[in-house]
Computed example of a mutant assay.
Amino acid sequence: MIKQKTNSKSNWHIRCRQTFAKKRKECSTGLLMNPKNWNAKKQFVESPEPDPERINT
């Protein structure tokens, strides 16, 4: 999640970061989530978010 990048409803943009051979690539997933539904300790999205299973996979 990029906390600095929010839309007008204060939702976070979800990004994907991959590292291979010490090179990092980052791309947007096109998904948004409400920061209140993010469980930082467990590192996943919780239920009030629509379709949390899709986001967590």
Rank of each mutant, 00 (worst) to 15 (best):
K23A: 04
Q43D: 15
L32V: 08
Q43V: 10
E53V: 15
W38I: 05
L32H: 04
T19A: 06
Q43C: 13
D51N: 14
L31K: 10
N37L: 03
S8P: 00
P52L: 01
N11W: 13
R15T: 15
H13M: 06
R24F: 02
C16G: 01
N7Y: 04
S47W: 10
R54D: 13
I2F: 03
M1P: 11
R24E: 10
M1V: 10
F20I: 08
W38A: 01
S8N: 05
K22H: 03
K41C: 04
S28D: 12
D51Y: 10
K23P: 00
E49W: 01
P52H: 02
V45A: 09
W12D: 07
L31I: 12
N39D: 15
C16L: 13
Q43M: 13
F20A: 06
K5P: 00
K9V: 01
S10P: 00
A40P: 08
G30D: 07
E26N: 12
A21Y: 00
P52C: 03
F44G: 06
R17F: 07
N7E: 06
K5A: 03
V45G: 02
P50H: 09
T29A: 01
T57H: 05
M33H: 04
S10H: 10
S47T: 14
K25M: 08
K5D: 11
C27V: 14
T6Q: 10
N37H: 13
K42A: 14
R54E: 15
N34W: 00
Q43H: 11
L32G: 00
Q18G: 09
N37T: 09
M33A: 08
M33K: 00
L31M: 09
N34I: 03
I55E: 03
I14G: 02
F20Q: 13
N34F: 00
S10R: 10
K42V: 10
K25Y: 09
W38M: 01
E46M: 13
P35I: 05
N7D: 15
R54L: 14
T19H: 05
S47A: 14
T29E: 09
N34V: 05
N34A: 02
K23I: 05
T6E: 07
M33C: 11
N56F: 08
R17H: 14
P50S: 12
K5E: 13
R15A: 10
P50R: 07
P35R: 01
H13G: 02
P50V: 09
Q18A: 11
N11Y: 11
T57V: 09
E46L: 10
K3M: 02
K42H: 13
N7M: 03
F20R: 09
T29P: 02
N7I: 05
H13W: 06
T6C: 03
T57Q: 05
S8L: 04
C16I: 15
Q18F: 03
E26Y: 00
E53R: 12
K9N: 08
P52V: 09
R17L: 15
R15K: 14
I2H: 07
V45C: 13
V45Q: 06
A21V: 04
S28E: 14
S47I: 15
E26T: 14
N39Y: 06
